[in-house]
């Protein structure tokens, strides 16, 4: 397993580098000039050209890429064009907000989504199942920004129960988290439900029943554990979407996180900010995918066998004869 993780961590490097290069390329070919934006519309062409030169904007792409890499290995992400503050410091102070928003939203989605899916599956074809699935279809289809605005309007403006914007108290987190997670609660619920319905038709579930196990144990120990394997995959993939959703929620609710920073960078053509944010976000995303794969391997012995074949085989052969059943603890 350790080797597997190390290998995957190593593979992360080309992925993140590739993404960084593509971002650089995209910024170069999209219209808009950061120097012009910094100096305002009154600036003379000479001043703009001079600034472009100091910022290194006229260098060839590859030179800029190498320069960027050189900075990154030193933990330096450059200075923001707009604020003149180091991008790295800015990201470090903003990171906790985004991490909190994303991880709590993910937690909420999992904690609510899975039981909801199991509930719908165990009440298959009843009004409870249909109701739960109809509501979740509704939330799956609703764009995050639209839902966030509805929440602000209803709970913030009309009822005045919760703060509109900013993050002064813990209550301020409620609306952003609800807005970010609700769609994913629904996604996980639907996925769990369909996997459960698939799994309960499997022969080994009949075997479990035929052993005389109580319904609850059949559902939670035998069916759910198997049904969750594909759900883990979905959760991993969701993470990217969740970050995307968080960017929007942060802007709408005025949360000073990475998302807000990224979007500000994008609108202001602040290249270092964009490059730095995308770099960090892609590292985060790749790490999550790695974690998902590890969890995958832990839960599913068939995958574990593929990732760590040699070690487990050796141990088995060695134990074959002298293994004492008393020692085999479950």
């Amino acid at each position: 397993m350790g080797k597997f993780i190390a290998k995957r961590l190593f593979m992360l490097i080309p992925v993140v580098l590739g993404i960084s290069f593509i971002v650089l390329l995209l910024l170069a070919i999209t219209p808009g000039d950061p120097a012009k934006m910094m100096l305002g519309t009154q600036a003379t062409p000479e001043r703009i050209a001079a600034l472009r030169d100091t910022l290194g904007l006229d260098d060839p792409i590859l030179v800029r890429f190498v320069h960027f890499l050189g900075q990154i290995v030193q933990g330096d992400f450059g200075t923001s064009f707009m604020t003149k503050r180091p991008v790295f410091d800015e990201m470090i102070t903003r990171m906790p907000y985004t991490l909190l928003l994303v991880s709590v939203s993910l937690g909420v989605s999992v904690v609510l989504g899975i039981p909801l899916g199991v509930y719908a599956a165990t009440h298959h074809n009843t009004w409870k199942d249909n109701g739960a699935m109809f509501i979740s279809l509704f939330f799956v289809s609703m764009p995050v920004f639209w839902f966030a605005l509805l929440l602000v309007r209803f709970f913030g403006v009309e009822l005045r129960w919760l703060p509109l914007s900013g993050i002064d108290t813990w209550q301020s987190w409620i609306l952003p988290i609800v807005a970010t997670s609700l769609g994913f609660v629904a996604t996980i619920a639907r996925q769990t439900r369909s996997n459960m319905l698939e799994v309960v038709r499997q022969d080994y579930i009949v075997t479990a029943k035929a052993k005389g196990l109580p319904e609850r144990r059949v559902i939670y120990r035998h069916a759910l554990k198997n049904a969750l394997i594909p759900v883990i995959m979905v959760i991993g993939n969701m993470f990217g979407l969740l970050i995307g959703g968080a960017l929007i929620t942060e802007v709408i609710f005025g949360i000073p996180g990475l998302g807000q920073y990224t979007i500000a960078g994008l609108t202001g053509r602040d290249y270092p900010v964009i490059q730095g944010s995308v770099f960090i976000l892609s590292v985060m995303f790749s790490l999550v995918i790695l974690i998902v794969d590890v969890v995958f391997a832990i839960v599913d012995p068939r995958i574990r066998a593929q990732s760590g074949r040699n070690n487990s085989k050796k141990r088995k052969v060695g134990n074959q004869i002298e293994e004492d059943p008393q020692e085999i603890e479950a």
Binding site: D203, T207, A208, H222, N226, I229, V299, D300, P301, R302
Partner: peptide, 9 residues
């Protein structure tokens, strides 16, 4: 069918 009668995990 013994291939599917056991819980794979």
């Amino acid at each position: 069918d013994p291939m599917t009668a056991l819980n794979p995990i």
